[in-house]
């Protein structure tokens, strides 16, 4: 083993390993299962290491790792050809156009206008709802709401224009809010459409 190579390995580890928790979280939200997530992370880091020569120092290593991770995930999913998910995505894409007033907020306006109900929902239920989102919405929501990535970075990572990121975030968040609202109604935390009974 040459000196240069092991220097490059320690350089890679220094740059890439600090993001392990974030990459693992991302992989976990993408795949939905811890063992698959670990697998995904391992392949991501191996690929990243092999491509380390092409990586430009100083650029965002985290985004770079997310990009590789997502590509690995998408390729694997393609291979296992999960048609149901693709169908779901198409349905979501052709949904009604965005309404300026958030419909979930309208529904809770009379009872819980500041959305306190979100706080009452257990983590597991929220994670389930995130995992049920079509991949393109899920990725956008995770990268923005969880990892705090700028729209421009998400756009580059997903290879779409910033406007598309915004609309994916918009639709993904609304879909999530709807599911969580329905759950809150189901569990009795808020009563459905109480607001309309006011008059």
């Amino acid at each position: 083993m040459s000196e240069a190579k092991s220097n490059s390995r320690s350089g890679f580890e220094e740059e890439a390993l600090p993001h392990l928790d974030a990459v693992y979280r991302f992989a976990l939200r993408l795949s939905g299962a811890p063992d698959q997530a670990e697998d995904l992370v391992q392949e991501t880091y191996l690929r990243a290491f092999n491509a380390w020569g092409q990586y430009t120092r100083g650029t965002a290593a985290k985004s770079w790792l997310f990009t590789i991770c997502r590509n690995v995930f998408l390729r694997r999913r393609e291979r296992s050809s999960r048609h149901d998910q693709l169908v779901a995505e198409n349905v979501a894409r052709t949904g009604p156009g965005p309404s300026p007033v958030n419909p979930v907020w309208s529904a809770v306006l009379g009872v819980d206008p500041e959305g306190d109900f979100f706080e009452s929902i257990v983590d597991e239920r929220i994670l389930e709802a995130i995992e049920a989102l079509p991949e393109e919405y899920r990725t956008a929501v995770i990268l923005s709401d969880l990892e705090g990535l700028p729209y421009a970075d998400i756009a580059e990572l997903m290879e779409v224009p910033v406007g598309t990121v915004k609309s994916r975030l918009f639709r993904g968040r609304r879909q999530l809010q709807k599911v969580l609202y329905e759950y809150a109604v189901e569990t009795g935390y808020i009563s459905a459409r109480t607001g309309t009974d006011e008059s």
């Binding site: 500041e114 979100f118 706080e119 709401d145 969880l146 969580l180």
Partner: peptide, 10 residues
């Protein structure tokens, strides 16, 4: 509150 819930859960 919604963003906070997502962050807290995930």
């Amino acid at each position: 509150a919604f963003k906070e819930a997502v962050r807290r859960a995930a």
